[in-house]
Amino acid sequence: MPKALDLTGLKIGCLKVVKRLPKRTDSMGHEWLCYCECGNQYITTTSHLNRKCGVKSCGCYVKELARKQSKKNIENATEETYLIASKKIKETMKKNNELVENTRLSSISSKKLRSDNKSGHRGVAFKDGKWVARISISGKEHYLGSFDQKEEAIVAREKGEELYFKPLIDKYKNKQN
Rank of each mutant, 00 (worst) to 15 (best):
K171F: 08
L21M: 03
Q176C: 15
N73C: 04
I12S: 07
Q149E: 11
R134G: 11
C53T: 14
T8N: 10
N96F: 05
I154P: 02
P22C: 04
V62L: 01
E152D: 14
K175A: 13
K95H: 07
K72D: 12
E79K: 12
L144D: 04
S146L: 00
E161C: 02
L7N: 10
R122L: 10
I135C: 09
E158D: 06
A153I: 05
D26M: 09
C53V: 05
D26H: 05
E151L: 07
V55G: 09
K52G: 08
C53G: 05
E75M: 10
K23F: 12
I108M: 03
N117P: 03
E151M: 00
T92E: 07
I137L: 06
K71V: 13
S138W: 03
M28P: 09
S27N: 03
V18R: 00
V55R: 07
H30A: 05
L144K: 11
T103I: 00
C38G: 05
I169S: 08
I108S: 10
G54A: 03
G9S: 14
K90H: 01
L21D: 10
L10R: 08
L21C: 10
R134I: 07
I135T: 08
Y143P: 07
V124C: 01
R114A: 13
L99I: 04
H30Y: 13
L7E: 13
T78R: 07
E75C: 05
N76C: 00
G160D: 02
Y35I: 02
S27F: 11
C53E: 14
K87E: 11
G13A: 04
W32S: 05
K87A: 10
K90T: 02
E79I: 08
Y172E: 14
N174K: 15
Y61E: 07
S146G: 08
K171P: 09
Y61I: 05
T8F: 08
R20K: 14
Q41D: 13
K112S: 05
K3Y: 14
